[in-house]
């Protein structure tokens, strides 16, 4: 009994020490470069760059991916990344839509309160609960359009943002 306990304890101790040494030998390689790139991305998690979020895109940039794939960040982000990495500042990738100066607005008379748009929103800008009407917090919305596909009654529309004076346009007749 004693021998069994001691042996198991020793096995556990040895393996534990080995793991702890391995952890010191190979620390998680979330390199500072990735963190610096991630800090310059807008954190909208909109996935328009083709990666599931800003951190995966930051990792991809660290491995040589192009820096001009972030529509919400626009030229500002591209310039910041170009300065950080010493690469050339390119215009936004042609296949992507330029920075959307728009916000989502829910037509509250048509909203059925299904709450399907809530999990789709990457920045939690939609307020609401099942069977209650939802609405969008304008200041948080990044205009990424990810809430449009899940809406079963198509009651979400994108309107040009009214927050920036240069982006204001006359409403369509």
């Amino acid at each position: 009994m004693l021998a069994a306990t001691l042996t198991l304890a020793l096995i556990g101790l040895t393996l534990g020490l080995m793991l702890s040494l391995a952890h010191r030998r190979w620390p998680p390689n979330e390199s500072e470069l990735v963190q610096a790139i991630d800090a310059r991305l807008p954190q909208t998690q909109c996935a328009q760059c083709g990666y599931p979020g800003c951190l995966p895109y930051a990792r991809a940039i660290a491995n040589g991916e192009a820096i001009n794939k972030c529509p919400p960040g626009g030229d500002e982000t591209i310039n910041a990344l170009a300065r950080l990495l010493g690469r050339e500042a390119l215009p936004l990738d042609g296949s992507l839509k330029p920075a959307p100066n728009q916000v989502a607005v829910i037509d509250e008379s048509r909203c059925i309160g299904c709450a399907r748009c809530l999990p789709a929103c990457p920045v939690d800008a939609i307020v609401g609960a099942p069977r209650q009407m939802h609405t969008v917090i304008e200041a948080q919305c990044t205009g990424c359009e990810l809430c449009l596909p899940p809406c079963p009654v198509d009651c979400i529309e994108l309107v040009p943002t009214t927050q920036l004076s240069e982006a204001w346009t006359w409403p369509k007749p």
Partner: peptide
């Protein structure tokens, strides 16, 4: 323990 070790090694050498 081996699985943990593999995980540590993979995370350190190949984040992808």
């Amino acid at each position: 323990a081996l699985v943990q070790l593999t995980e540590l090694y993979v995370r350190a050498t190949s984040p992808v």
